[in-house]
Amino acid sequence: MKNLFTLEEVAFEDVTFPPLLEIKKGEVTFICGKSGHGKSTLLKLLNNMISADSGKVLYLGNSIENYNPVQLRQEVLFCRQATYLFEGTIYENFNQFYRYRELPPPSKKEIRHYLDICAIEFDLDADCNLMSGGERHRIYLAICLSFQPKVLLLDEPTSALDDATAHEALKGIIHHCEEHSIDLIVVSHNTTLTDTFAHAVIRLENKSCSNQSIAYSVDADTHARLEGNKP
């Protein structure tokens, strides 16, 4: 089977990735590593928000530079670590995002469904400005999830959440993605979550101490399938 993503000798600015980096289809892949070692950069490369300075990024066997970038990002959707919500209620936020994506607004039932997945108990007309950072981020996650991408890239989805909520929200998201065969790639520094949910783990680790470029080791292909989370 073709890899979902393959990175061959990719470098971007001062980050050099391992010579070969593969992300398989049908798995929940976690990306770990200290901050500043290119975790977010990797996600941005995967939906062409940035292009590699050198090397090749392949999506389903084809160079990512051959895809229409906007269509690709709709298919490989990137949910950033920094939350963005518009002014207004949850319902208005869904509508605004859908307007920008040029899609008909989702029904209240659909919205409720995605809010439930992300463990949000608020009413649809609750004002997002009055919510905590963690609540706002889960609404942002719910909106991203509702676009039904083929691949979902999550950058530190649980950094603003307490452990119990993080576990519940991520469990809901992973369950939904497995049901709808959405491939999930998650950047996280939370080892408990990684141990619980990851099918495969990519570790980006500083190997050399050169100032100019940072090299990494990778154990992506160990496919750390952990007990209790086999599909």
Binding site: Y84, R101, C144
Partner: peptide, 17 residues
């Protein structure tokens, strides 16, 4: 900037954003 990046990341075209 955050808004623009968030919109582009989910597949909104730069002109639209």
């Amino acid at each position: 900037r955050n808004r623009t990046e968030a919109l582009l990341s989910i597949g909104v075209s730069p002109p639209k954003a």
